[in-house]
Design a protein around this nucleic acid. Structure first.
Lengths: 120, 120
DNA sequence: CTCAATGCAAACATTTTGCAAAGAC
DNA sequence: GTCTTTGCAAAATGTTTGCATTGAG
């Protein structure tokens, strides 16, 4: 998993486990799962993970959230309770996307806002 | 435009004009266009505009940006120079979106990442 | 043994709040 | 004249940096 010159410290492993436990967590939530790791280290480690592409940084309106960069998926955000969930089927129609002349598409993200089942 | 109990102060008009001048600006950019308005007022006014739905708040990875809530469009973000541009044609396939059982869709946003024409 | 990684404290940036004065209606 | 809005200063919040120490390789 790591081996490109990065050291596998206990702190990094702990943060990785925290990330694996749940999707799209805030920095505080991650830190709460490994309180013995210094807050500064959490910041730096998440920065590092983002840079090497292991972690995706999201911004859904309430500050940064982090999740392991695994399968392609998007997010449903409930306007009323703020809960976030994922869905797998990507609703992007590729034919309608490659019309953007002069822009080379690398990736995309989709956020869907509305009301979740609990709030209906 | 306003008349639902909100006062049309010179500050609010100035901020509205600043917003009209350019899309997806940061709070600092908006404030720079009307320096005589107190920074606190810019914060409060943008909050107000967001609440009443006149302004859309974006978060594209580099802090909040604001734009007038006009025609439905999405954003292209260049990974290399960070420039942001809009595109009109929505690439969402509605058929693939209403499959989300138990979630009532109200709106959505799409961000496309890649390289702009200048950076290719 | 060496150099990257950590943790503390302090610096820094950003956003929010309290309150008196000003101004829109 | 009333009640909202403004602006200042201060507080709260969130993030980054400097530097000595620790520990993985």
């Amino acid at each position: 998993m790591k081996g490109r010159g990065y050291k596998a410290t206990p702190q990094r492993v702990a943060i990785l486990e925290a990330l694996a436990a749940e999707q799209h967590q805030s920095l505080d939530e991650i830190h709460a799962k490994c309180p013995h790791v210094g807050l500064v280290t959490v910041y730096r480690t998440l920065d590092l993970f983002s840079e090497i592409g292991a972690v995706r940084r999201l911004d859904l309106g309430d500050g940064s959230r982090y999740e392991l960069a695994e399968a392609h998926h998007h997010h449903l955000i409930c306007d009323s309770c703020g809960s976030i969930s994922e869905f797998e089927g990507c609703p992007i129609d590729p034919e309608r996307l490659d019309v953007e002349g002069g822009f080379e598409v690398r990736s995309h993200s989709v956020e869907v806002y509305g009301n979740c089942a609990e709030c209906l």
